[in-house]
Design a binder for these strands. Structure first.
Lengths: 374, 374
DNA sequence: TTGTATGCGTTATCAA
DNA sequence: TTGATAACGCATACAA
């Protein structure tokens, strides 16, 4: 690869000054048509390409690139999110750089630093599990940061439980709640435990999980299995909170042994299938709340293998939910809306709109398709 | 956002020269430990961050960023591909910038130009449908380019047909074929019609489709439906070629009306479902070859709705293939291998290894799970 | 409308 | 080992 031609080369070839070429490239109108023609010709014959990296080092100029750090590109949930973020940003002239941390805190940190070093204009990131808030403090000092899907929490954050059951009825409101962060109060709001002011977009995980679990009880279930991934994940903790709220409400008392019905070791669909398979014969369980799409698929696999099926509701919609009989009921999150919301929040921040960082909680929707019934 | 501190600031704060800071940042070892300590401290207190964009404008230096242009982030096939490419590249110190053209030729061109302007070190791209080879000629003049999933073809390229049926037995070999491009000969090889030398990684679409269709005939099918997306897509054309080979072999003659069994208007799962639904009652069809994952899912939906099912084999594996009964047989492509192969080819090129551009054709695998039987 | 000179943050040369 | 200085490709005062 020979070294690429520069503006200087174009200027020389066209017999004009560097500045004129710069104007032409940047779309200035006040150029002599004659010269403009010569420049255009030179650009073509030399194969000149504007160097945005070089241009972006000038003060006040940027490359108009945004970074997006997600946790798993291979999961449709995340790729759908990336897609919607990209759509909004590209409509506004930004290029999106999507990277995946594979749920690895170390890699997450590396990627964030790398993107900042690359001088992206802003960052949208799904905070990694248990990685504290240092990265976010450091990053938000360098550029506008939006947390997506999970809040930025100190690494000491533990599952919240036994919380006030006031206004939340577990069904999710019709519209998103936007709550300005009050770093003084550390309870009540979904930001409980957060002590860094980062614009955040979340789904109402607890509300969705509660609605699903309640529905299973309403259909006559007595012992509902919570099937999910590690509680190191914020979303899992929230969904467990919702599940527990529903259990408590259904049983009237704190059900001592309900822990036996909570499984949080289903990291993949295969593991979920094994767990459910082992439980199917035991009679310990008469319904399943699958706390993410992998778990739902695993549970279905186990049902199929065993030729038995229990009432099931999953968190997160998935493509094959309508392919199996009965079709799978799910708590659906509006992924597209989440991506859009995060993207717009970042754009607002880039535009200099001085809004206080806030937490936006998007409602979920319980879609009943039949699998919730015995 | 205050303007970020520069090396100069760090140098001033640490009381050393600019160059020394530069050395420190770039990991040079020959620095007085005393000074190194002062520099490190200054970096932390100032919150300095290395500016890779600025560094990369120096000749011989690059930002170590690769661009990947795929056609649909929301399709698991592409996100899996992106994932495997990212894995290989990040192991080699590169950052991957994944963008999605949404199958839009105009947007594809825009994105390619944008990435080049951003001065990525190399590009892996899925050529858009019917966009000719101008973009590839222009791009490969500026940086190393690898085409993935589809070859770069002139926009006039039409479905190939009636080709020699020599060594291909439609089953796919055990290992990948790597064929050096000979721009003189324009027939026989999978590059037929290509006239620009671009490193290319493809799957054996025709072979996989032929194997699947043959299997359906072997199971007793008489009239197999080809259900797929537009023939503007190279992969669809190839799969149709394979299908036709199998049809011809099964019927002994060119079956005049086989066109009636070829549907190429299934752009989404929903469309595929409608098409299959309309055909189910007609008796025109007794088996289905679904030429991509969307079509497979659509066909399943139609089966489920109608309560009838026909023998089915799909091209491309998909997550729910094992969830339905009978489980869906598929032609599986090794997406991870395709991504790796493309990434390694690009890395080799970046390392300066002067290999001739070649076309690598990866074998496919027919996985029989039961749905192929009546 | 066009050109000159200067600076952006970083690295490389070369002398100290 | 360290530092002054000159690039790198581009854009912007400012002058012409």
């Amino acid at each position: 690869m020979p070294k690429p031609p520069t503006m200087k080369d174009v200027a020389a070839a066209a017999g004009v000054s560097l500045k004129t070429v710069s104007r032409h490239v940047n779309g200035a109108t006040n150029i002599d048509p004659e010269l403009a023609g010569r420049i255009a010709a030179a650009i073509v014959t030399l194969g000149y390409r504007h160097n945005l990296a070089a241009a972006s080092i000038r003060p006040g100029r940027s490359a108009k690139v945004i970074g997006l750090v997600i946790s798993d590109l291979a999961n449709p949930y995340w790729s759908a999110l990336a897609r919607s973020v990209e759509r909004v940003l590209s409509e506004n002239g930004y290029l999106l750089m999507t990277v995946s941390s594979e749920e690895d805190a170390e890699r997450h940190r590396l990627l964030v630093d790398r993107l900042i070093a690359q001088r992206v204009d802003g960052l949208i990131a799904a905070p990694p599990r248990r990685d504290g808030l240092d990265w976010a403090v450091s990053a938000s000092a360098a550029l506008p940061l939006v947390a997506i899907d999970r809040p930025v929490l100190p690494s000491s954050a533990r599952p919240r439980d036994e919380e006030p059951e006031g206004d939340s009825d577990g069904v999710g409101g019709e519209s998103a709640r936007r709550v300005t962060i009050d770093s003084e109060s550390t309870n009540g709001s979904p930001t409980a435990g957060s002590s860094v002011a980062v614009e955040t977009v979340l789904a109402d995980n607890a509300g969705g999980a509660e609605a699903a679990t309640r529905e299973l009880f309403a259909q006559g279930a007595r012992r509902v299995l919570f099937l999910g991934d590690s509680l190191e994940l914020y979303t899992m903790r929230e969904r467990l909170v919702g599940y527990r709220r529903a259990v408590r409400r259904a049983s009237g008392d704190p059900v001592d042994d309900d822990r036996a019905l909570v499984v949080t070791s289903a990291h993949t669909a295969a593991e979920a299938a094994d767990i459910v398979g082992a439980l199917l014969g035991s009679g310990q369980v008469d319904a399943v709340f699958a706390a993410n799409n992998r778990s739902s698929i695993g549970a279905l696999e186990a049902f199929t293998r065993a030729g038995i099926r229990l009432p099931l509701i999953g968190y997160d919609d998935f493509e094959s939910a309508t392919l199996v009989r009965p079709a799978v009921s799910v708590v659906a999150q509006d992924v597209a809306l989440m991506g859009e919301t995060a993207a717009r929040a970042l754009l607002a921040r880039l535009a200099g709109t001085p809004t206080d960082p806030a937490v936006t909680v998007l409602p979920t929707q319980l879609i009943l398709r039949g699998s919730e019934r015995p």
